[in-house]
Design a protein around this nucleic acid. Structure first.
Length: 363
DNA sequence: AACCCGTGGAC
DNA sequence: TGTCCAAGGGT
């Protein structure tokens, strides 16, 4: 590394903060730099809640969930007092449902400490659902600690700035060292958010807007003319296809038969219509034999849904039925919308009863 | 370390 | 239509 590089990183951080002051995104969970300058501090509860929701999830997807959560549960103690099922219902559709289970577990622990979050990276790291990224993010944003925040945006920005040829995830150690050298002693939280804003709006994965970038003079990849090639990533394995069947039983009053999935694993703790297992590959036709009870099952179409590591094709069966099978419950048309139904289950119900999940109570 | 865990938007 | 991938964590 050339000697002049000693001063390079602080200068980059300073330019980034200057850009952030003028071009930062305004987000409901964020305290703007001007407010921080006036001495205002972020609410750790809102910072924590937003960071959990934002894990592998876009800002636009989070907005409505965040406002609904803080309106209903304004404090961590209020969230701790909530019923588990209510939290799962409110989280339905956002994905990665273990986040919701850990959210409640974390709220319980913090509420037991008087509703006060730990104010250090190490303290935060011990809480459920808070890993290396989230601990660093909360420590820096909410508590002004000079933590090295590393997420996908930071990895991309740093990889391009220093034109790192090592593929991810192997390069993470190297990237972390660079971030640690760059974090400023003052405004570490704004520095983290500035890097993430830059990655989200300028230093994007494809077609980065380098002409608008405050760091265009600092960027090794831009100087080499190939910023889009970074970060280098290993090829991803193909997604296997799994097949199965879903069974939509409809009562005379229009209620749909549901049950709760096991607490752990895929869609853990969420609600579903009865399904066959989908772990096994089904090469041939599905059949109503896998239904929770015998009935006049009729084919009602097929849906496809893509999960993180496999694609699922579900044959949909429908029947009219009036009974009370063990470990199942009926959900009336005005209740269905509020159930803890993952998107794949809403798709299955929609295929059998168009419009069934789209109407709120009273409509 | 490698695998599991959702969803929707952009291109 | 397919592919990528977003403020990652748990095991």
């Amino acid at each position: 590394m050339a000697p002049q590089d000693k001063s390079r990183k602080p200068a980059i951080a300073a330019r980034l903060l200057e850009w952030y002051d003028a071009h930062h995104r305004e987000l409901p969970w964020r305290t703007a730099p001007a407010a921080l300058a006036r001495g205002e501090r972020p609410d750790p509860y809102r910072v924590w809640l937003s960071e959990i929701m934002l894990q592998q999830t876009t800002v636009e997807a989070v907005r409505s969930y965040f406002s609904a959560f803080v309106a209903r549960w304004p404090t961590v103690s209020a969230l701790a007092a909530a019923a588990n099922d209510d939290i799962m219902k409110a989280w339905a559709g956002l994905g990665y449902y273990s986040r919701a289970r850990n959210l409640k577990a974390c709220a319980d622990l913090v509420a037991a400490q008087g509703g006060v979050f730990p104010d250090t990276e190490e303290g935060l790291r011990t809480l459920p659902g808070i890993g290396p990224y989230t601990a660093a993010a909360i420590a820096s944003i909410a508590f002004d600690r000079p933590a090295a925040v590393m997420d996908g945006n930071v990895e991309r920005v740093i990889s391009r700035l220093f034109r790192i040829e090592t593929p991810l995830p192997q390069a993470k150690t190297q990237i972390r060292a660079l971030v640690e050298q760059m974090v400023p002693a003052t405004r570490p939280g704004d520095f983290a958010q500035a890097t993430m804003d830059l990655g989200a709006t300028i230093c994007t994965p494809r077609r980065p807007k380098c002409m608008l970038c405050p760091l265009r003079e600092d960027c090794d990849a831009l100087a080499a003319g190939d910023p889009e090639l970074y970060p280098v990533k290993l090829a991803k394995p193909e997604k296997p296809l799994r097949r199965g069947a879903a069974f939509v039983a409809v009562r005379a009053d229009g209620a749909v038969l549901l049950r709760k999935r096991p607490e752990k694993g895929l869609l853990g703790g969420m609600t579903e219509v009865p399904t066959s297992g989908w772990t096994a590959r089904l090469d041939g036709e599905t059949s109503p034999d896998a239904a929770p009870f015998p009935s006049q099952w009729e084919r009602a179409g097929q849906i496809a849904h893509v999960f993180t590591h496999f694609t699922l094709e579900l044959d949909i069966y429908r029947t009219r039925f009036d009974g009370n099978p063990a470990d199942h419950f009926w959900s009336r048309p005005d209740e269905l919308h509020g159930e803890a139904l993952p998107t794949v289950m809403k798709k299955a119900i929609e295929a059998a009863i168009p419009g069934a999940t789209k109407h709120k109570a009273g409509r």
